[in-house]
Amino acid sequence: MAVQSVTLNYQGHYGYLDYNEETHEMTVFIPDAEEAAQKVRDFLSSPKTMEVPTDQCTYHFGEVTVDPKNSWQDCQQALTRLWVNTGVLVEWSMPPRMANDL
């Protein structure tokens, strides 16, 4: 079972998102911030249409639709818009669950 994880941060409350690549299930946990965790779940529960750079270059954009439930790649793409839509930050460079040991 391949589970991909990222660290989430809501106003200093560190949690995580786990994505099971076999079952396409997501687990979102942010201690002491259940309302923020629910916002993340709600945001990732439906397809998103967004403008992203095309293969041509970084200043040519094209519209794509991603469904976070379909694949880890689609989920990652949707996560790039998470903070703007929910106020929850993805800490891409922080190993998941690292904050548990702080």
Rank of each mutant, 00 (worst) to 15 (best):
G62R: 09
Y10A: 08
D74W: 04
A78Q: 00
E35L: 09
E51K: 15
E25Y: 03
E25V: 01
L17C: 08
E91T: 00
A33W: 06
F43Y: 15
Q4P: 03
W83I: 00
S5F: 06
V88E: 08
E63R: 06
V6C: 09
W72V: 01
P68K: 02
I30C: 04
Q11E: 15
V90A: 05
S71V: 01
L17G: 04
P53D: 10
Q4C: 13
Y14G: 02
F61T: 10
V40E: 14
S45R: 01
Y59E: 14
M1S: 14
Q73C: 01
H24G: 01
L89S: 03
R97N: 14
C75Q: 01
A99D: 13
G87M: 06
P53F: 14
V28E: 05
T65V: 10
T58D: 14
P47R: 08
P53I: 04
N9Q: 08
M50G: 09
T86V: 07
L17D: 04
D55P: 03
V28G: 08
A78G: 11
V66T: 01
E51T: 10
Q11W: 07
E34A: 12
Y59W: 14
D42F: 09
T80E: 08
Y19K: 01
D101Q: 14
Q4K: 13
P47V: 03
T49W: 13
Y14V: 00
A33G: 03
W83F: 08
F29C: 11
C75S: 05
V66L: 06
T54P: 03
E25M: 02
E25A: 11
N100Y: 14
